[in-house]
């Protein structure tokens, strides 16, 4: 609900005349639920920023959060929510900081002992503050979504390097949990690397995979099958003893896929096999 001009004016007067009392009370109330993660001084700095901008906006005659005159106020609020989102505060903690202004005004303006007019003003102001808080909430959600998207992208980029270990041998070291999306990316990159480097050997190293369940095994098996269709052979390496136990317990069959305990063993195996190919072809050429 928008304020009318008089209500807006009266709020401005209150905020200006009793600025110090309100900002002190606001900071105090705002810092209370944050349980020491933000000191009163820090909370005060943030609320003071908001208060100054709010005063400026009201002075400019704004009666509504969505109006053009409130653009700067919205910018300050978004900046504040973004900061809180990045620092790891919850949405509630962020919104209550803004809502604390209600308590501050209630105490400072003496609404409890005030007449009917004061009460009516107070109701209008609180609904205005609610709007501010809702806006904060929305900015917070947007900021968090952006953070999640960024992290997802970074994770995908980081998590799937395909490295050439030796002539004709490429390796993909898997780190972290393997879900369907990642498994798909890993599979595509590995197969493309096989083509690009012309390698007939690929080593899938699962040292960095914390747990192997049937789903992860399924993804690995699919990758191996696809590589075989393209004419390359895969070795699975980096199986820790606990994981070997899990694999057996789950009854996962790796069939005729070569598995090795360490990446070094896998590389040795690949070199030996391609070495024997080389020896044979040399013998034939001789």
């Amino acid at each position: 609900m928008a304020l009318n001009a008089e209500q807006s004016e009266r709020l401005n007067v209150l905020l200006t005349d009793r600025a110090e009392e309100i900002s002190a009370r606001w900071a105090e109330v705002a810092a209370a639920p944050l349980r020491g993660r933000l000191t009163v001084a820090e909370a005060a700095r943030q609320t003071l920023d908001l208060q100054r901008q709010l005063q400026a906006t009201l002075r400019a005659g704004a009666t509504d959060v969505a109006s053009d005159r409130s653009a700067e106020l919205r910018a300050v609020l978004s900046e504040f929510s973004r900061g809180r989102a990045r620092q790891g505060f919850t949405a509630t903690e962020t919104a209550t900081t803004v809502l604390a202004l209600k308590t501050a005004i209630y105490d400072v303006a003496g609404v409890e002992k005030g007449d009917e007019a004061t009460l009516r003003d107070y109701v209008a102001w609180t609904s205005f503050i609610d709007e501010l808080s809702l806006f904060t909430f929305e900015s917070y959600t947007k900021a968090r979504e952006r953070i999640i998207t960024e992290q997802n992208e970074q994770l995908l980029e980081l998590s799937t390097p395909v490295v050439k270990l030796w002539e004709g041998v490429v390796s993909v070291p898997l780190v972290g949990t393997l879900d369907s999306a990642r498994a798909q990316v890993v599979m595509e990159r590995l197969l493309q690397a096989l083509i690009d480097t012309g390698s007939p050997w690929a080593i899938i190293d699962i040292t960095g995979v914390p747990a192997v369940d049937t789903q992860v095994a399924q993804h690995v098996l699919k990758t191996v099958m696809a590589a075989r269709l393209m004419g390359a052979e895969c070795i699975v390496s980096g199986i820790r003893p606990q994981i070997a136990q899990t694999i057996v317990a789950l009854g996962i069959e790796f069939g005729d896929i070569v598995t090795k305990a360490s990446l070094a063993d896998a590389l040795r195996h690949a070199i030996k096999m391609s070495g024997s190919e080389l020896a044979r072809s040399q013998r034939r050429a001789a």
Binding site: M187, E188, L191, Q192, L194, I195, G198, S199, P200, K222, M225, A226, A227, R228, L229, M230, G231, A232
Partner: peptide
Amino acid sequence: GMRPAVAITLVELGLSLNGIRTALN
């Protein structure tokens, strides 16, 4: 010379092309 996309599709379809030998090129 099977392409990666083709290989992935075949695996997803569950076709393993039994009895066929493959090579990169």
